[in-house]
Design a protein around this nucleic acid. Structure first.
Lengths: 350, 350
DNA sequence: CTATGCCACTGAACCGGTCAAGCACAGCGA
DNA sequence: TCGCTGTGCTTGACCGGTTCAGTGGCATAG
């Protein structure tokens, strides 16, 4: 396979390598006539730049990196990541950029990968997800001088450019909705406490319930269905059970629903359940799960846009992608014994 | 950030660039004493090869490509892909290789990506999944001369090296199990008929049911929960309903279970359900779903191993990764009216 | 003592682009 | 007529590795 190079284009077009480079990159230094001729020859030969050569001289790899650090099983259970990646690519693809992906099983491996990518010059920038509280990746990226876009709350990003969703506002909306329905004892089945977005929801949940003067309890899990189901049973079958439970992902909500179903507790008559993420899972249960959710594909696309802005030298201001909204379905309703006052909501969205 | 290059190592070690290259790559041409000195200097300076420079001269990118062509939503709902990727990385990471990922929304985009990666020399080889019947990617890869490992049945791979799981045998096991339980009317809720693995299961299902002399019906869907639920209801509430339904993924099985639950049909008393893939979803329903499943992470790892073998020049023989097995849980049992003969199974695995 | 061969290493070309510097020539004003 | 400026193109260095054709030194064979 004799690969087409600019040298060959230069010969055929009767100009030098340099002129071809100028012409192909749309920069001044060649006449329009020459440029057109070069472009035509390039098209005829179906020339594509050798990415390695570009990288070597230009120092731009046209590649971004993403490391996902979770257990493979957990990762598979979260539709979030695949949709997020799809959103990234929606923007990267048309711009000729590629995504380098690594799935790591712990943060140390991820950090090593970031170091390697930086040292080997494999990526122009990286996307960082699942921020921890006091995340060690933030200082590492600073130290490496590796451009990065952090997916998460500005309070966690340590000054790095970030794209975030306002989870606190979403929690407030959910709590407000539940309180308006008449619920007075709320519980939250949360993910790992060391994850930044979990902590942000923790705080928002505590604040919103305190402000509304209702009781609240948050329990942390590993995001698994197993723990989601167990914790739900413990809560609902225990002393002073909550009348509404808010989950940190969809899988745990599904597991909770099944556990209650098994225990003979009816949803939403006895307990209201609210999932988080609003993936397809929420629409395949009976009753269908009400959920706090957002457009994850668009979220990924927003992050990709931010990556390009970053390389263009824009300042590291946080970008709010959007605020997750509550989607009411059949798993939520007034608490048993009826609402304190008539349904005060404005009606749900499907 | 003054990047460390072999030139600097050469200066410090008092040898030439060439000698350093030999030393670092473990090839003959330098004495052991010199090699040790070079390696030590390299370690001290924390040298890493510039990947672009390597690619440019060596023509090896240490990168493999993977294109996933599905709707982003569908993709998110299939734990398969994330686990598969995790399995790939399990092997690639330690060997210093990276994975370039693209999510495409149709096959044309995927083909364009493959052309681009090949022309730009971005990858050493690619992994091809979701093979179609008469897949156009097979001749394309041939034309491009791009090394590839096909994930799927040898009959679909068109002579390209492939890694596969014996889905036909798994279908036979499932049908055998159902027949042994006494079921005489089976149905299958399948995915898109144009996917190779769906067709293989189609044929195996038809053959196995015919051999057992039981009635069988296969309906195709788009893998979505919505269609999975709808088709299940149509089947079970229709004329001559099946007593057992085998699904092509977990999501549809969950949706089917919910739909029946909603319609007041009890599982497994009235209908037996069997999911496929056996992700965490199967353990968060009530009753828990029996499923045909396998170790997807190991599958991905096997594919990665095959990639390296391919680059080492091994012949394109198919590799059987493993055969999915039936995992019995609570959604399967004898048909209503009792088994034709006493339970003939040897007991299930968790 | 020369010839032979091997070992360890050097020097330079090369991969395919980018880019700064330089050069030829046209157009223009003085 | 001579310089000056700007356009359009060429030349060649450079990125950081790999690789191949030497080369000099040394040991062994003839």
């Amino acid at each position: 396979m004799p690969r087409v190079t600019i040298k060959e284009i230069a010969q055929r077009a009767g100009v030098s390598k340099g002129a071809v480079s100028y012409a192909l990159n749309g920069r001044p230094g060649v006449s329009e006539a020459t440029r057109a001729r070069v472009l035509q020859v390039a098209a005829e030969l179906d020339w594509r730049p050798n990415s390695a050569a570009r990288m070597l001289s230009g120092a731009r790899t046209a590649t971004f990196g993403l490391v996902l650090t979770r257990q493979p099983e957990t990762l598979g259970n979260e539709p979030f990541f695949m949709q997020f990646v799809a959103g990234l690519e929606r923007v990267l693809g048309p711009r000729g950029h590629a995504l380098l992906l690594q799935v790591a099983h712990d943060l140390d491996v991820e950090m090593t990968t970031l170091r390697t990518w930086s040292a080997e010059r494999r990526v122009d920038a990286v996307v960082v997800v699942d921020l921890r509280v006091g995340d060690p990746r933030v200082p590492l990226l600073r130290e490496l001088g590796l451009p990065a876009v952090v997916v998460g709350d500005p309070s966690l990003a340590g000054g790095l450019p970030c794209v975030w969703t306002d989870d606190a506002a979403a929690v407030e909306e959910a709590v407000g909705h539940l309180v308006a329905l008449g619920h007075r004892r709320l519980a939250r089945v949360a993910g790992s406490a060391d994850l930044g977005h979990v902590q942000i929801r923790d705080l928002a949940f505590a604040a919103a319930t305190a402000a509304a003067g209702v009781s609240a309890l948050t329990l942390h899990t590993d995001f698994s269905g197993q723990q989601g189901g167990q914790v739900t049973k413990d809560l609902v079958l225990g002393d002073s059970p909550p009348t509404a439970v808010l989950y940190d992902n969809d899988l745990m909500a599904v597991a909770g629903l099944s556990a209650l179903n098994e225990a003979g507790v009816s949803v939403p008559e006895q307990v209201t359940l609210l999932a988080w993420d609003d993936s397809a899972l929420c629409r395949v249960t009976h009753p269908r799960l009400s959920a706090v959710g957002h457009d994850v594909v668009a979220y990924g696309a927003a992050v990709a846009e931010r990556l390009f802005q970053l390389l263009d030298g824009s300042p590291p201001d946080p970008v709010l992608a959007h605020t997750p909204r509550l989607h009411e379905r059949a798993s939520s309703g007034p608490p048993p014994g009826g609402p304190v006052r008539p349904r005060a909501t404005t009606g749900g969205r499907a």
